[in-house]
Write a protein that binds this DNA or RNA. Structure first.
Length: 503
RNA sequence: GCCCCGGUAGUGUAGCUCGGCCCAGCAUCUCGGACUUUCGAUCCGACGACCCGGGUUCAAAUCCCGGCCGGGGCACCA
């Protein structure tokens, strides 16, 4: 097949296997609703979305909201947060399913598996079973129980006779399996935890591998792409599919992602968001999709970076730099330029020619047709005697010596005179002079500049002043502060607030 | 302890199924240079890898064996 070469398209991904076995590709995304999707979940989402779009298939969003555990709990607000993240990524979901709506289905199959003698109700103490039976590969007495006895026990699980952990349904995957991980795994257990959607309606809950063994078939899933932490679960699913003679969906696994420049912890983020230490789920330290959106990271930058990883099952450690590089190439063109000075060193301008009262800087240097920003030097028109003052970046000023020739970008060249206050003596207008002297060209701000705060990636805030035109910028604008970096305006009142994206 | 998976430049990836066109392609990073009134963009260039050892073969990154290294599983979590 001929693939058109388009350098803007992500790398060509491999074909999905055994396409001819299925009428139409049906895939699913199954986040556990404990919080918003973060960059680590993006791979799962993007991969599934990519293949569904490629084959014009169907994508089902399945909220994997079984009861979880003490460490992993369903959080009610997560459902909407997840949808928000999917919207940002541009994922179209054809259908949404909640695991917690399907308990009756899992119960029916549980009874059927018991009747087929493929499963049994085990009331052994979990640690005893682990140490005496799983490790040694020896079946417990429960395994030999009659169907009748098992069904009776099953009812006792449902009606509350058994307490939590008092009994569980085990699937007969085989006590003689060489892999201890595969020996008669629990597929349903008792939990009386309150569920955000269905409350205490059910006290018997399926485990992930079991619910998927049933649902991947019931939902008509043809291809499953998920993290390799689920390969054991995949094997158990295959065991279930074989019992029923169902056609096996294709299983694809990818490795875990580690980010060199980000620490991801949904539970820590949750804690910090709740305590107010983080400003919300869009705090950059959460690395949530919301936070990336706020920073102006284009969904396609994320998409390309994720697809560039391919489908390798190896665990990988990646950097955000490719994402940033892609984002820059996607958004640099649209980004208007502004000056921002973090800790201005206020300096007096002297000897300005009378006609030099405003600086004109291009909105975007590569597109002169987009016009100029005007930076007036004389805000105090009523008091012509007042000195003209500009703010310089402290970092630059520190490196200057008296007598240095520097250029205020888009204005003129000056000779530095260090002091308190520092003064800048007008020298010349054109850029050639400073070039010859090999002097620095720095950005600056005039007196009537706009209070501006930039939220950095580590959550700290760079506060300073932005040039006057920043006042008219709209919320949502992706911009560049010259010699500082790119960011997106996310809020504006007296202060313009920008989320830093990248250099 | 048992089981599974994997090892291509700093990082990520292509190639490995069907050995030769691979003295290994691409991206990113880094470093030079050009250009530019930004530490942005653009252009040019450079650096840099098939884990090791055997074997099969006319020929191996690709197949086989051993070793080493790395990751994961062994929950009444997802």
């Amino acid at each position: 097949m001929e693939q058109p070469e388009d350098e803007h398209e992500p790398k060509e991904m491999p074909e999905l296997p055994n396409l001819d076995k299925w009428d139409r590709v049906v895939m699913r995304m199954a986040p556990f609703p404990s919080g918003p999707l973060h960059i680590g979940n993006a791979r799962m989402v993007i991969l599934n979305d990519y293949y569904v779009k490629r084959y014009d298939g169907e994508l089902i969003l399945v909220f994997d909201d079984t009861i979880g555990s003490d460490e992993k709990q369903v959080e009610p607000e997560a459902f909407d947060l997840i949808r928000e993240g999917l919207d940002y990524l541009g994922v179209n979901v054809d259908r949404t399913v909640y695991k917690s709506d399907r308990l009756e289905l899992f119960y029916r199959y549980a009874v059927d598996l018991i009747k087929r003698e493929e499963a049994y109700v085990c009331d052994c103490d979990p640690s005893v079973w682990r140490n005496e039976h799983k490790v040694k590969g020896k079946a417990c007495a429960c395994r030999r129980l009659s169907v009748e006895e098992n069904l009776k026990r099953w009812e006792m699980m449902l009606d509350g006779t058994y307490p939590e952990k008092g009994a569980a349904v085990r699937l007969k995957t085989g006590m003689d399996d060489p892999d201890p991980a595969m020996r008669d795994h629990v597929i349903l257990r008792i939990s009386e935890t309150d569920h955000p959607r269905v409350g205490t309606k059910y006290r018997v809950w399926p485990l992930l591998e079991y619910s998927w063994g049933i649902d991947d078939h019931e939902l008509g899933i043809t291809h499953i792409i998920r993290g390799k932490d689920l390969v054991k679960e995949g094997k158990i699913e295959q065991h279930i599919w074989s019992i029923y003679g169902w056609k096996h969906p294709e299983l694809l696994y990818y490795g875990r992602l580690k980010f060199q420049d980000a620490t991801l912890s949904k539970s820590k983020s949750r804690q910090e968001v709740l305590s107010g230490a983080y400003t919300g789920w869009d705090d950059p330290r959460t690395w949530s999709l919301q936070s990336l959106e706020r920073r102006g990271i284009h969904a396609d930058a994320l998409r390309k970076a994720m697809l560039d990883l391919g489908l390798s099952i190896v665990d990988i450690s990646i950097s955000m730099k490719p994402v940033y590089a892609e984002n820059r190439s996607l958004r640099d063109e649209e980004a208007p330029r502004f000056f921002f000075v973090e800790e201005p060193v206020w300096s007096h301008l002297q000897g300005l020619p009378p006609d030099l009262d405003t600086a004109h800087a291009p909105v975007h240097p590569d597109f002169p047709q987009r016009g100029v920003r005007n930076i007036p030097l004389y805000p105090k028109k009523l008091n012509p005697e007042a000195p003209v003052i500009v703010g310089l970046p402290e970092r630059d000023y520190e490196g200057f010596k008296s007598g240095d020739l520097i250029r205020l970008k888009d204005l003129a060249n000056f000779v530095v005179e260090r002091g308190d206050p520092p003064t800048l003596q007008y020298d010349s207008k054109s850029v050639e002079e400073v070039r010859e002297a090999d002097g620095p060209i720095i950005h600056w701000i005039p007196e009537n500049s706009v209070p501006t705060e930039i939220v950095l990636i580590d959550g700290s805030i760079a506060s300073g002043l932005g040039e006057p035109d920043l006042r008219s910028v709209e919320v949502g604008t992706f911009l560049q502060f010259e010699r500082f970096g790119f960011g997106r305006v996310y809020e504006k009142d007296e202060i313009v607030r920008v989320a830093f994206a990248h250099k």
